[in-house]
Amino acid sequence: MWLSNQTLGSDFFLLGLFSQSPHPDILFFIIFVIFLMAVSGNIILILLIHIDSCLHTPMYFFINQLSLMDLTYISVTVPKMLVNKLAEVRTISAVGCGTQMFFYLLLGGSEYCLLAAMAYDRYVAICHPLRYSVLMNHRVCVLLASGCWFVGSMDGFLLTPVTMTFPFCRSKEIHHFFCEAPAVTKLSCSDTSLYEIFMYLCCIIMLFIPMSVISASYYFIILTVHRMNSAEGRKKAFATCSSHITVVILFYGAAVYTYMLPRSYHTPEKDMVVSFFYTILTPVLNPVIYSLRNKDVTGALKKMLRAGKVPY
């Protein structure tokens, strides 16, 4: 139902990263290694959180959701790109393109909201520690996570059908390595200005509301930490927030460039580099940020290694 008859009957061509690289084979190997690291890192983190009872807390519940999103995120785009390189083809079907776009929008929108939920969790833990177990009980965590997935799915259901039903009477060559909505929209021969305004407004809402929650949460966290008399307490509070702040900066910075800067600031090459950063690199960085910088996770990993429970 998303696709017009004209779109359904033809394939798109992903020009991708390899056509821009002077050493495509080396780039293929690097991306393949990054993909394996991202998949294995997120799977191990998910398993650790499920296996170790010490990690059955709201903070790790949200980290588990983040790893699940990142795992799906990178799996939506990278395998198709690698398979195309091996097969020496650049095509992607209209159905495949629409499916890729839908899941990409769904996961991106969900992650924006999830990062806000994680900031709220840190706010409650630091500013209201005595009521933390009540305010962030399992039911509340499930409702927040479900809301994040729902908002993301609405983003996908709103933007994907409209994008894929535009008439594409120009070249079907997408100057990207996956079907990102702005890149596909550029191929349409119809007037897309109204749709671009709609997309821009959607992105403002999707970014502004979570960023407002994150900013407000950290404003109150900073006030609370500033009032602490214990230097050790301050250090612990900042340590629990530093990983989240790093992920927020990485993810939101790239999202603002992609969806909120005017078209004059964009070139296909810049767009691919930025998308490569938050589509391929961020999913491999998140497990590193939340594991190497977290004593609870490293402790759970050592415990699992000693017990011989590492999955092969």
Rank of each mutant, 00 (worst) to 15 (best):
4 S>W: 08
5 N>E: 15
7 T>G: 10
7 T>I: 10
12 F>N: 05
13 F>T: 03
18 F>M: 08
23 H>Q: 13
26 I>H: 09
28 F>K: 03
30 I>G: 07
32 F>S: 01
32 F>Q: 00
33 V>M: 00
34 I>P: 04
35 F>R: 00
36 L>T: 12
37 M>H: 14
37 M>N: 07
39 V>M: 11
39 V>N: 04
42 N>T: 07
42 N>C: 12
43 I>K: 04
44 I>D: 07
45 L>C: 09
47 L>H: 01
51 I>W: 11
51 I>P: 00
54 C>T: 09
55 L>T: 01
55 L>V: 05
56 H>M: 11
58 P>C: 00
60 Y>R: 03
62 F>N: 09
63 I>N: 00
66 L>H: 05
67 S>C: 15
68 L>P: 14
72 T>C: 15
72 T>F: 09
74 I>T: 04
75 S>F: 07
75 S>P: 00
76 V>C: 13
77 T>A: 13
79 P>T: 02
83 V>A: 14
83 V>P: 14
90 R>Q: 09
92 I>H: 11
99 T>R: 12
100 Q>Y: 15
102 F>N: 01
109 G>S: 03
110 S>E: 01
112 Y>I: 01
113 C>M: 10
118 M>D: 05
118 M>A: 08
119 A>C: 13
123 Y>W: 12
126 I>D: 04
126 I>Q: 01
128 H>K: 12
130 L>F: 10
131 R>F: 05
132 Y>T: 04
135 L>E: 08
136 M>Y: 02
137 N>A: 03
146 S>L: 10
147 G>A: 12
147 G>D: 11
147 G>P: 02
148 C>N: 03
153 S>M: 05
153 S>F: 04
155 D>A: 04
156 G>Q: 05
156 G>V: 03
161 P>W: 09
165 T>M: 12
170 R>I: 08
173 E>N: 14
174 I>W: 14
175 H>P: 05
177 F>I: 03
178 F>R: 00
179 C>K: 02
185 T>R: 10
186 K>T: 04
186 K>M: 06
188 S>D: 12
190 S>E: 06
190 S>P: 07
190 S>W: 10
190 S>H: 06
191 D>Q: 15
191 D>S: 12
193 S>R: 15
194 L>W: 12
195 Y>M: 10
195 Y>I: 06
195 Y>V: 15
198 F>N: 01
200 Y>D: 10
200 Y>A: 11
203 C>F: 01
204 I>P: 13
204 I>H: 08
205 I>R: 01
206 M>W: 06
214 I>S: 04
218 Y>R: 07
227 R>M: 04
228 M>W: 00
229 N>W: 01
229 N>P: 09
244 H>T: 05
252 Y>K: 07
254 A>C: 13
257 Y>I: 05
259 Y>N: 11
259 Y>K: 15
261 L>R: 03
261 L>A: 13
266 H>K: 02
267 T>Y: 07
270 K>C: 12
271 D>S: 08
276 F>G: 08
278 Y>K: 09
281 L>Q: 05
282 T>C: 13
285 L>S: 08
285 L>T: 02
285 L>D: 00
287 P>G: 06
288 V>I: 11
289 I>A: 04
290 Y>E: 02
292 L>Q: 06
292 L>D: 10
298 T>C: 09
298 T>Q: 09
300 A>Q: 08
302 K>Y: 13
307 A>S: 15
309 K>A: 14
309 K>Q: 06
310 V>D: 09
311 P>Q: 15
